[in-house]
Computed example of a mutant assay.
Amino acid sequence: MEAACLSRLLLASSVLLLSATTGRAAATPAYYYDTTFVRQSHRRAVFQFDQRFSILNGKVVGINGVKGGIEWRGRWRAGLGVYRLSGGVPTRIAQPEGTPAGTRDEVRFRYLAAYGEYVFIGNPRWELSTPLQLGGGSYYTKYYFPDGGIRRTNNQFLFVIEPSIAAHYRVFRWIGLGAGTGYRQVMAAGKLPQDDMSGIIFFGRVKLFLGDLLKVVRGHERLFSQRGLENSRLRQTAE
């Protein structure tokens, strides 16, 4: 008799435990994330407007850029970018002999870069990463003469390496804003001194997550929804 009662008690306890576990799993949304890091097994395309700034020879200059690539496992990114100096950088080198007094000279450059990026901490809303860019391009010097004439030198090859640290914050599931800082080291093939183009960089980004945008459009979801981004609150609720 006591054995039968004990068996019924164990059976009832098992049923209650199973029900509680099932109920909690059902209450947890399908898009619940671990706040430690975002892990995704599939690959997705990423696209960025990458506006960079540098203080070169005492002048703040902008470098306009755009880049795109592939992200996989939510941790690694790689791709290509193209950049162009938006304005000239005043040089510090002596002008060629015979140059009229009052002549102004500026360096201009552009380059193509391959980049790799490692995300070492983050969640669906924000992340911190370490991008590294390696690229090559060309530069030239432009001379503005007092009489209004303009002359430019031939293009010279340059090599660029840019280590940096960056962060971004997703405003919505498919778009985010980012910023970061780093250093640009330029190695030139000509006689131009490197400090005309090398220096500290700081940048702002608008990141478009094409894969997530396609999912939102195809799934007829609300374009400005916060779905999938409230992971901290969801985890607290679930716990």
Results as ranks from 00 to 15, higher is better:
13 S>M: 11
214 L>A: 15
35 T>S: 10
31 Y>E: 08
228 G>Y: 03
173 R>T: 14
82 V>C: 11
117 E>R: 08
120 F>E: 00
67 K>L: 15
83 Y>H: 15
81 G>M: 13
33 Y>L: 06
156 Q>N: 02
110 R>Q: 11
28 T>V: 07
57 N>Y: 06
202 F>P: 04
190 G>V: 02
186 V>T: 05
129 S>I: 06
234 L>N: 07
78 A>L: 15
188 A>S: 10
45 A>W: 09
109 F>H: 05
12 A>C: 05
154 N>S: 08
165 I>S: 07
169 Y>C: 08
23 G>K: 02
203 F>M: 10
125 R>M: 09
237 T>N: 14
156 Q>T: 00
211 G>Q: 04
120 F>S: 01
216 V>E: 08
208 L>C: 08
216 V>Y: 02
235 R>Y: 02
226 Q>T: 11
212 D>C: 01
197 M>N: 04
224 F>L: 15
134 L>S: 04
21 T>R: 04
46 V>L: 09
95 Q>M: 05
46 V>P: 00
98 G>K: 01
25 A>G: 00
78 A>P: 04
191 K>H: 10
127 E>D: 14
117 E>L: 04
59 K>P: 00
174 W>F: 06
219 G>V: 01
26 A>H: 07
136 G>S: 10
85 L>G: 11
150 I>D: 03
236 Q>P: 00
230 E>D: 15
46 V>F: 14
21 T>G: 03
239 E>D: 08
214 L>W: 10
227 R>Q: 14
180 G>R: 09
162 E>D: 09
22 T>D: 03
92 R>K: 08
131 P>F: 06
191 K>T: 11
218 R>N: 13
35 T>D: 13
9 L>Y: 07
10 L>S: 09
79 G>H: 11
32 Y>R: 10
229 L>I: 07
115 Y>D: 08
50 D>M: 12
215 K>I: 03
155 N>D: 14
180 G>D: 12
155 N>Y: 12
215 K>Y: 02
153 T>L: 01
194 Q>I: 01
44 R>N: 13
127 E>F: 11
224 F>P: 03
71 E>Q: 15
102 G>F: 01
203 F>C: 11
162 E>S: 13
202 F>E: 04
22 T>P: 00
187 M>D: 04
135 G>S: 06
138 S>N: 06
